[in-house]
Amino acid sequence: MWAYVVRRLLVTIPTVLAVVTLCYVLLHLTPGGPFDAERKVSDAVLANLQAKYHLDLPLWKQYLYYLRDLLHGDLGASFRYADWSVNDLVARALPVSLAIGGTAMVVAVGLGVALGIAAALRQNSAVDVGVMLLANIGSVLPSFVLGPVLVLVFAILLPWLPSGGWDDFAPRYMILPIALLTLINVATIGRIMRGSLIEVLGSNFIRTARAKGLPTRVVVMRHALRPALLPVVSVIGPLAISSITSAIVTESWFSIPGLGKLIVNGASDRDYTLVLGLVVLVTVLAVLLNLLVDLAYAWLDPKIRY
C-alpha cells in the first residue's frame, strides 16, 4: 500500500504543474490587468510596476521564474496587498478555513451518518420521514438563504451569537458559520447514507447474518456499515474541499477572513500571484483528500487492494 501512496503522491506533481500552467495562461488571457484603475496608471509608473513584478519579461520567462519560486515554497508578492506576501495571506487564511470547514465537515459526517442510519433502520417511519424532510430542506435551501435565517434567529431575534465577524478563533464567532456549513453537508451525507444502508441491508449477506441470529446492532455495525459507507466516503472528498476552499457565500455572509474571500478578491483584482497560490493550494488539498478517500475505500471494502 505504501508503494501506492508514494505513487499517488508523485502523480501530484504533474497534476499541480498542469493546473498551474493552465491557470497561468488563463489569468494572462483574461482582459484587464492588476494595475488597471479608475485613473490610468502613467506609462512610467506602469513600467516600474511591471519591472517590480517581472511582468516586463516574456510570459514563458515569467512562468519559469514563478515555477522556480514555487519550488522554493515562495508563492510570490501579492499585486494588491502591498504589505503582505501571498505566503503571508495564505498562512493567515488557511487555518481559518480549516477551522470552520474542517469542524463543519467532521460534525456533518458524524451527524449525517447517524441520521442516515436512524432513517434507514426505521424506513418509512416518522423518524425516517423527519430525517428525509430535514435532508431535503437542507439540500434545496442554498446557503445564501439558510445563512440569513440562522443570523435572523440566533443573532438578531435571539441575540445569543454575533451575526458575523472574526476574532482570533474565538468560538462564539465560529458557531453560526460552522452550523451553516454543517447543515448544508449533513443533508447530503444523511441522504446518501440512508439510501446506501437500505440497499446494503437488502443484500444477501445481511440476510445470512440475520439468519444466523445476530442482533440488529451487530448486523448493522459489523456487517452493513462498512460497505454502506462507501458512497458516503466518495462524496466526502469533494464536500470537504468545497467546505474549506470555496465556502465563499458563508465567508462573505459572516465576514470570515478565510480562503474563499481571498479567491474571489484575488480574481477580481487580477492579483495573479494570489490566485495562482490559492489554486496550487486547492489542487494539493484536492489531491490529498482524494488520496485519503481512496485509502478509506480499501479499508472499507476488502475487495479493494492497492
Binding site: 496587498y81 503582505w84 503571508d88 495571506l89 493567515r92 487564511a93 465577524g165 472574526w166 476574532d167 482570533d168 465576514s255 470570515i256 477572513p257 478565510g258 474571500k261 481571498l262
Partner: peptide, 8 residues
Amino acid sequence: KDWQVNSK
C-alpha cells in the same frame, strides 16, 4: 494595535 487581514 492589531491587523487581522480581511477581518479588522
